[in-house]
Amino acid sequence: MNYIYLLINIAVIFFPMVLSFDKKVHFFSKWKFVLPAILLTGVVFLIWDLLFVKLNVWSFNPDYIVGIQFFGLPLEEILFFLTVPYACVFIYECLNAYFPKDSLQKYSFSLSNLFLGLCIAMLFLGYNRWYTVINFGFLFIVLAYVEYFNVKFRFMYKFYRAYLVSLIPFYIVNGFLTSIPVVIYNDKQNLGFRVGTIPFEDHFYLMGLLLMNIYLYEFFKSRATGKGIN
């Protein structure tokens, strides 16, 4: 039983890794952009994770982890920030390869503003709850930067499309993690509203994690090619 979280990590990355050599997507050729994006984002989220453990925002069920820890975090939790972003950026690139049209791009700015408004509302409602404040505060900063200060390339329609599709495996994976539970949430530090067993904030935790990864991925790719995003 103590291999459950490790097996979930392996399941998350197995098919994206195998399918990275698909001729149309050719994802393995983009690893030089994907890996630094994942590593840089991972550092931010691991610091965040450590803080949350210290603040008792969440904890890990010892019955479902192998027991190897680094800086107080289970090995599986560290792997989570490699496997999940890799799978999500893979989804992003697959959608771009198979559905290149972005006719709905013109609506993405309005959608971003709606999410920014939601962040402000959630910060107001959960001002005294660590998970709510840090989660929506982080998303607000990253989303505002990408939409209002990122003038060289636009990719938010493609991002939202990938985020929407990523919610499918998110519900499966996070459903397991929160129902077994592998990750135990302190509801005093979140809004207390759940979709099934998944805290409401987790949906936007995924959004912030995916957005930072994709922004950095596109940033490194544009620097290498000298082009923006079409």
Rank of each mutant, 00 (worst) to 15 (best):
L73V: 09
M122H: 04
F71N: 08
F14T: 13
L211A: 10
L79Q: 01
T83E: 04
S222E: 01
F219R: 07
K227H: 10
K227G: 04
L7N: 11
P62G: 01
I198V: 13
L206C: 15
Y163R: 02
G226M: 08
W58F: 15
E76S: 05
P199H: 10
Y185P: 05
F52R: 05
Y107Q: 04
V34Q: 07
N128H: 10
Y148P: 03
F200L: 14
L125I: 10
M1E: 09
L40C: 03
W130T: 12
R161D: 09
F170H: 00
L164N: 03
F99D: 08
N190F: 11
N150V: 04
K188W: 05
D49C: 07
V44T: 14
W58K: 08
N150K: 02
K188E: 12
P169C: 09
G42N: 05
N9G: 07
F70M: 10
V66M: 06
N2A: 01
Y160G: 09
G117M: 03
Y3T: 11
T197L: 08
F153W: 02
I214E: 12
F15D: 06
S222N: 08
F21N: 13
M212H: 07
C88R: 00
V182H: 05
I198Q: 06
L143H: 03
L19M: 13
Y127W: 11
F99A: 13
Q105N: 11
P181K: 02
V18H: 08
V84L: 05
Y171A: 04
L167G: 02
D102T: 15
N56H: 14
Y5R: 08
I4A: 09
Y86G: 00
E218F: 06
L19P: 12
P36V: 02
Y92G: 01
T225K: 04
L191K: 13
G126R: 03
K32F: 04
F153R: 02
D102Q: 15
Q105R: 13
K23I: 12
F124Y: 11
K24D: 12
S29T: 15
Y127T: 00
S112G: 13
N128Q: 09
V43Y: 11
K30D: 10
P169V: 12
L55G: 00
Y127L: 06
I198K: 03
F27L: 13
N213K: 14
Y145K: 02
Y98D: 08
N2E: 10
K158S: 14
Q189H: 10
Y92P: 01
G196Y: 00
V165L: 13
N186P: 06
I68T: 11
R161E: 07
G196S: 04
P74K: 03
W130S: 13
I141E: 01
A224D: 14
M1Q: 06
L39A: 15
F14I: 10
W48D: 03
L104I: 13
Y127F: 15
D187T: 04
